[in-house]
Design a protein around this nucleic acid. Structure first.
Lengths: 195, 195, 195, 195
DNA sequence: GATGAATGAGGATTCATTCAT
DNA sequence: GATGAATGAATCCTCATTCAT
């Protein structure tokens, strides 16, 4: 049944879109499974046909979002020709663009609430691990300041990015994209103080 | 009756300590009101005699913790003689010491879960506002880099600190206090890269 | 699914019957939601699937009962050919028969406790309003004594009927239906005293 | 200790006044014992020093009110010289005056909610019993219509009076005292219809 | 595959009453 | 006699999940 398969995929897609929208506006735990089904235009039972449980839907959304984000970020890592400053700038640009294009997804992806859902511990750890690996490589290449711990720095940089972006998605009018990028880059590259 | 009043204060204190311990280990929403009462050695009703509801206890704990932290941080702000680098280093030291001395409190205070509890929006906003004011003053004094937005930078720095400290409290063995301090300071003062 | 719909309606019916029986014997506030569910042979949650809350069930029962009673009483109002005495007698007969046929429902419907449930303010007001309208019409037709206020008389007559019937349902052996009817009619039509 | 005794009586009086006011405005079950104590300016424990429990306070208030009302009504019964019409008129006047002078007390005394409190079953029964005895006497004297059951008529008359007065206390502007009295008297003495 | 009525364990909160001071 | 902090049984309602249709 090709039509049936298409319909199944379509149903799953609608559930995920409903999840992205509702999780973004109410948070995961405050989103009722009936509300998800209603928003997706299906019966509650259908949710459990496509996902193990509500957290399964959240996990699918977040993982898919994470993969998409990491795929984009991966393009930077591959380009060995870039110097450190350029790589940082590219990374920031990618994250800001991602936030602009998929704000609903990002609100859930960067949402600190998700910490309690064990999913995002995985997500955080993956994101941090990537940053950590990069810092380790840079340290090996002598690019990193000697006093800096790659592990700590990775946490700090990720925290800085997620916290700032999460705020910016909710309050997009508080800063324009260029200022946001410039500030985050400057902070990472040479601190905020004039020299 | 003075004895009665003392006993009431003592009961409240025990409830708050039970809250600090349980909220730290299970999070606010996963801590049952009965567990709080049991841990404090009182009946459930007593919790509601001292606080409006479970969130009221959380709010009291967080607010008291916040005040304590801000009071310590305030000593830095007052010392106008400090140069920027010294002020940053002092601030970091204070936060790390606070985290070491009151790890349970900090786990709840810096815990992103609290975001969903509306309490910590207040807390975050207060912390960010303080950092923001400091940056504005420094900008006025020409200390800040021109490209940097005080508002964005305040969010970024607070996110960096809270995210890192929250991680460090949970995994204290991943880094020693000096490395943590050195990395956070270096990042804020001149970025992580060698120059 | 038609079978499913039928089952849903059947479940609702059983909840309402459980409500009629339990509310009649214990009153609304002394009837536990679990008792209602148990009596209806369903889980507690099912009660809240069909009604907003316990009061919602009570409201549904009372409103349905009221509609049934008013429908029967309406037949009298329509028969314009009846003289005053005959109309009163018919009305009394209808109410007594209704009380005999659905004693459980009437215990709740006429139960003064319901006053506190805000529901029966509506019920009382509707019943009184009907009687009031009738009295106003009769006053306009010169049938009413000049000293009589239709508004007050309506309250008095309704109070007389409800209070008497509520008592009679609980103590059916204290008077037979004919005596009850005769006394209530005589009181309304020409007072209780011989002339 | 004469001063102590006086103080005790005074405390009891304040509790009863608090009860009259709060029971009238919120009903018995919706009045918290702490609210009673607060309104009386004493501690909760004091309530239980003067009354067995909350219902005990309600009982005391209602019984005292009932005795006062019956005492006034008793003056009519004693005056054997009165003819039936005059006795009815006097009784109505007394009840209306009582309602005007002590509206708070009457709201609780005539409040149908009290039915569920077992207290008012006693009260109702006493009031009805008095009316019943009067009707039996009148029946023996040949004053009552032959078709009328004294027992039923007593219920009907009491229901009529209580229901009407309870309404009038809450909505005093819907009718003036004279119209109220005239209507109630006319209904009892010769029905509401013109002849 | 889709449905949606039914489930029931679970948890927050209330409030009349007590009793040590 | 008065106090008021402490009690804890009692009850309402929620909502993720299931499974017969």
């Amino acid at each position: 049944m090709n039509a049936r398969e298409r319909s199944k995929i379509e149903t799953r897609r609608r559930l995920m879109e409903a999840g992205i929208a509702l999780f973004a506006s109410r948070g995961i735990s405050d989103t009722r499974s009936t509300a998800l089904a209603e928003a997706a235009g299906v019966a509650v039972g259908t949710l459990y046909l496509h996902f193990k449980d509500k957290e399964g839907l959240a996990r699918a959304i977040l993982m898919e979002g994470l993969e998409a984000l990491l795929a984009e970020l991966g393009t930077v890592a591959c380009d060995a020709a870039l110097d450190v400053g350029e790589a940082v700038r590219r990374q920031t640009d990618i994250m800001i663009r991602f936030a602009q294009e998929r704000p609903g997804l990002c609100r859930t992806l960067f949402d600190p609430e998700a910490v309690r859902w064990q999913i995002s511990t995985e997500i955080m750890d993956r994101v941090v691990a990537i940053q950590e690996r990069r810092f380790f490589d840079q340290a090996a290449a002598g690019l990193l300041d000697a006093a800096v711990s790659p592990r700590v720095a990775a946490r700090a940089v990720v925290g800085m990015l997620l916290f700032s972006l999460n705020w910016w998605i909710i309050h997009p009018d508080e800063a324009d994209a260029e200022t946001l990028a410039a500030t985050l880059n400057r902070l990472r590259l040479s601190g905020v103080y004039a020299r």
